[in-house]
Amino acid sequence: MIDFFASLYEWFGLNPFYRTDFGELLRGYDATCTGYIDSPWYSYIGMIMIILTSLIYAFQYHIIDSSGFNKKKHWWLMSLVIISLNFFIAFIIPFNIIQSSNYCTSLNVAVVDCLGFGFSNAIWSFILFLLISTPPIFRKLSHNCRETTFYRP
């Protein structure tokens, strides 16, 4: 699972928004620099991103499910919430680790890497929201939002 999320967040090695060492930290490279035995943050944050995005999707499409909240402007509003929360979570967790120096100090990491990771997580959450809500597979179960996507109504 770590490798899966790592390859996602590192954009399959094409264009990571943070340094390789920061990726090591997220893989769970421990504070004593002995191995990958610390918390696997890639998996944790990836799972949080999926769950949070799915919950917010469900909140709009199946819990609120209102004709007063089913326009594309509402979709974009919810996507902004998703992006913001996921950016914040992906930023704040490694930021706290760096601030508390609870990581292998031989790794070359900085706050700017937290921003890059947050940005990466935000993009993936947006893509996920897009994937869940654009094809009618799930949204067709909604009464009032079954036609709601990023481009209509």
Binding site: S67, H143, E147, P153
Partner: peptide, 10 residues
């Protein structure tokens, strides 16, 4: 509501 609500779009 026309072209804005599912009952109209479907």
């Amino acid at each position: 509501s026309v072209e804005k609500q599912p009952w109209s779009i479907g």
